[in-house]
Every structure is written in C-alpha cells, then in structure tokens.
Write a protein that binds this DNA or RNA. Structure first.
Length: 491
RNA sequence: CGGGGCGUAGCGCAGUCCGGUAGCGCGCUUGCUUUGGGAGCAAGAAGUCCCGGGUUCAAAUCCCGGCGCCCCGACCA
C-alpha cells in the first residue's frame, strides 16, 4: 500500500553528494531527511511536513505499537487539541515545566476569549478532568486509553523529527486502583517500547528510571529508553511515567473501593513520538544516505530494470515484471522503478539515499543467465552485491531481509557497547563523556548530577534495570552508591 | 535574549566593494542519442533581486527603517 504512494522524482540536489557524517553530522542529517524524501520544511517555523515516504515509515511504526497496545487491553480514543489554560495551573510542577513551551489561543470567532486555550503540549490535564467524571467505582478501573495525534511545544531550536514545534505521537493515559498496578503498567509499556526498538527498529536501548531532575513535570517516577546515535550522543526514545496520585489529586480522580471508602486513583502516561524516526536515521544511516530496518521500511525491495534499447527493454521488462509480481505475492513490500528519464546508475544512488534494504537489478545479461543482481543496503556499493538465480528469488530476498535486520541490530549494538566505558575516577569520566557514554556508580544526588552537567554538558540518561545487587562509590563525590547510571551528552 | 552570517529562478550560488542589458550550476519542458554506479547534445520555460522609504537621469548594488531565516551559548519526546 504505502509503496504506491511514494514520489520518486529527483530533487534539485540529486547529483550532489551528501556531506559525510564525519565532515558535518548535523548537516548530514538535515540534508538526508529532505533528500530521502521523509519530510520537508514549511512556512511555519518549527513545523514540518511529513511526506508520504516518511509517513509510510511512521505508519509501520504506529501499526506495530497499536497492535501491542490492543493486545494488552488498551483502547484508542481522541481528546481535544485545545485545553483551558487554567487546567495547566492545577498541578504545580506540570505548569512550571510546560509554561515556557505553550502556544496559547486568545481569540476565536473574531472575539477575545474569556479564558485562553492552550494548544495541547500533552494531555494529562484534560484527560484527568474527563477521568474524574468517568470514574466513580473500583469497577470502573483500570482505564487504559491511548490517544494518537499531535501536540505542540514551542521550541527555541528545532530540527526535523528530533525537535519540532508540532510532533506526532501516541500518549497512553491510564488510571488504576493501586500504586502497584500503576507501576506494573508503567513497566509493561516500557517493555513494549524496548521490544519495539530491538525487534522492529533494530535500535538497541537501555531502559530504566530517570533521575529526579530529568523527570516529567508532575511525575513521581519517569522511566525511559535511551539509544546511542552515531555521534555518540544519547536520544531519549520513549518514556513511561508513574504519577502516583499527583494528577488524581489535582483533578479529583476518585473512586469508591470495595469497603465504600473514597480513594484517589493512581495514574500513568507514556509516549513514543515521531522523534523515533530521528533515532532510526542517526543509528543506521551511512554516508550514502538512509538505511532502514527491513521490518519498518515502507519499501523493502526495489526492482531496477536495465536496458539499452526497445528490444532489450521488452525482454528485461518481461523478467522484471515477473520478479516484481513474485516478490509482491510473497508478501514483500516491493517497488518497480521503471522510470525512463533517469539512468540506472542514478537509480542505484537514489534508492540508497532512501534507505531501501534490498535492490534487485535485472539487465540483459541476467535475462540470458536466469539471474539477478541483489544489492543489500547495509553494505553499500558493489561490496553488497551478489548474483543469484531468478528461481527461488522471493525466498532469497525474504531471507536477506531477515539477515539485514539482524545485522543492523548487531552492528548498532557493537558500536554502542564499544563506546560505553566505566570511568576509573572523575577525571576519567570527563574524558569519556566527551566522546562516548560513561557508566558509573552515582549517589543519586542532584548536586553530583548538576556538577557533571556543569563540567561536561553530559546529563544522567537513566539507571538501567536489573543491576547486580552490589555497592560502589559515587564517581563524583565518593559517597556510597547503590546503582550505576549512564552519563552522556544528549539531544 | 547576546554574538556571527544570509535573503537574487524550484534548489544551491555569483553579481553588491566601484550604480548602467539579470547571470551560473543543478532541477524543469521538448526532441534525438543513451541506460550494469549520480548520461550527452540541442532548443526552451522560468526571477515583485525579502519588504518599505530615500538619493540618483538610472538602484540587486548606495543611505535609512522594517521583516524573515540560518549558525553558536540557558529547555524538551
């Protein structure tokens, strides 16, 4: 489906080489997003267009997550984009956290509004208000609702996918009777996020709680999944929060328990946003362009026919059409590139820019020999090319897609692990975070964390779960510490 | 908000110092030849030179005033 919507017109810079990642990583990213046809800039500062190819990728991400949410009992619903400003003032930390980022509507229908409306930056408040209306009894719990949509946060510096004024996401909002149940929910979702990253995006992540200073405004516990980008900076790729009764008290979300006693609910919220696309780009992309994990790629294989004249064309197209149909029937998301106005060499580069995992080249020689050239995107250029028989091609391509998926995860994991170090002392930590991640004991005090940030610009990312039950000493102050944390510069 | 840069064809830029026919590359259109790693030739189409004012016979160019964007230093999924 998605593959048929993809525009394949060359752009104005098609023949220009992308800057390499080591030359200028930021510029590499900016150009790649546009030239791979994922997104474009608009007249509205900080707001992007997600183009059909980028949206097809997003749809593959969302449909997997949606399926998993439904499997675990969640249902989808939609809440308003506009939220009364006063709602934000009901939870102290929430208003402090979000005030600087709000877009506010002051007029409607040509008149000044009595109360300004906030363009939602997140929906805890309006959903909390509605939950208080809907929940009366322990029988009403849990409520497990997911909203798919977009939100707005006024940003100073924006970057396509990573930080835009408007971005796309799902936000799950749940209400429970007990703290245990709410915390279980938070971790259940975190596990889904982790599985998504490993299995679908081939992006290895660490999951665990964030420090107090990195918490979501209004949360008691914030957990995250954290990934390492090619430039070794960290990207928070998803979050899951436990609110305790903070929002329940602010919005009066109460129920009568089995003993006829009035209780506050325990709530959670969680999200993965379109930012995850930025992670996929920065983890897998190379100097030729985008590299997409096969399981998420809108186009998994592209067929490129090669011919010199009409006689060759008719012979080649006969085979190419047959191959295309075979792959399609085999459930592979395949695209036929029968453009007549660009050379095959151009097409090779073009599909590499767009990150298509497998390219099937069919020329006159292949027609004679009953073969095709198979090129795998994770090994660009001629190195990734092999010649295989036309018979059994569909299963060969399927197998190759699996192999590419695995190799991307393996490569990303090795790269990440090679760039995480355990510092011997504080000076060592400073050296490490200049070009990598440090994994060290930390006393969990805000002072020590702030000192690291001050000295190195690195922040604590998260405290990974399942650590051995050992004690150490804080890398900053030397006091006893129970758990290790990742320190890294982040996006 | 402080420092630096930019605004000229769809995109990337030259021209501005020293005022005088609006230019280049890519892309686009048409035709022919091409197509196994970013094709060639030929003929075309396409610009309120960011906006407003001023100086001048004449302004992309000089002067004044705006606006917008990008890059670097304090927040976030």
């Amino acid at each position: 489906m998605a593959e048929d919507n993809v525009s394949i017109r060359p752009d104005g810079q098609s023949t220009r080489r992308l800057p390499t990642r080591s030359e200028d990583f930021a510029e590499w990213y900016n150009q790649l997003v546009v030239r791979a046809d994922l997104a474009d800039y608009t007249p509205v500062r900080g707001c992007m267009v997600v183009k059909p190819y980028g949206w097809a990728l997003w749809e593959n991400i969302t449909s997997w997550l949606d399926t998993e949410f439904k499997k675990t009992g969640h249902v989808n619903a939609a809440f308003p984009t506009l939220i009364p400003l006063s709602f934000f003032e009901k939870e102290k930390e929430h208003v402090e956290g979000f005030s600087p980022q709000l877009a506010i509507v002051t007029h409607g229908g040509g008149e000044k509004l009595e109360e300004p409306l906030v363009v939602r930056p997140t929906s805890e408040t309006i959903i909390g208000y509605m939950y208080s209306k809907w929940i009366q009894s322990w029988r009403d719990l849990p409520i497990l609702i997911v909203q798919w949509g977009s939100v707005h946060r006024w940003e100073i510096r924006t970057k396509l996918f990573l930080r835009t004024t408007e971005f796309y996401w799902h936000e799950g909002h749940t209400a429970h009777a007990s703290a245990e149940e709410a915390k279980e929910e938070m971790y259940r979702i975190l596990d889904i996020y982790e599985r998504f990253c490993f299995e679908e995006a081939a992006v290895p992540v660490f999951k665990g709680p964030k420090s107090e200073s990195e918490r979501f405004p209004g949360a008691q516990i914030t957990t995250s999944i954290e990934a390492m980008m090619w430039d070794k900076r960290a990207l928070q790729s998803g979050t899951s929060h436990y609110f305790g009764q903070n929002f329940a008290r602010a919005f009066d979300i109460k129920y009568l328990d089995q003993n006829n006693a009035l209780q506050y609910c325990e709530t959670t919220s969680w999200a993965i946003s379109s930012r995850i696309i930025g992670a996929i780009i920065m983890v897998h992309g190379d100097d030729q362009g985008l590299v997409l994990p096969p399981r998420l790629a809108p186009i998994q294989a592209v067929v490129v026919p090669i011919y010199k004249n009409d006689a060759e064309k008719s012979k080649v197209m006969e085979v190419a059409d047959r191959v295309f149909k075979e792959l399609k029937d085999h459930g592979i998301r395949v695209k036929m590139d029968d453009r007549d106005n660009v050379s095959s060499g151009f097409k090779f580069n073009d599909w590499e820019m767009r990150g298509v995992p497998v390219r099937v080249e069919i020329g006159p020689k292949d027609v004679e020999k009953g073969s095709v050239a198979l090129a795998r995107r994770d090994k660009p250029g001629r190195e990734g090319k092999t010649f295989v028989s036309q018979s059994g091609l569909a299963s060969a391509v399927s197998g190759l897609l699996v192999e590419i998926q695995d190799s991307l995860l393996k490569r990303a994991t090795e790269y990440r692990d090679a760039n995480i170090h355990e510092p011997k002392d504080y000076e060592d930590l400073k050296r490490i975070v200049a070009d990598g991640w440090a994994f060290a004991y930390w006393c969990e005090s805000t002072e020590c964390e702030a000192k690291v940030k001050e000295d190195t610009k690195a922040t604590t990312r998260n405290i990974p779960l399942n650590q051995p039950d050992e004690e150490g000493i804080c890398i900053v102050c030397g006091r006893p510490a129970k758990r290790k944390v990742y320190f890294a510069r982040s996006y």
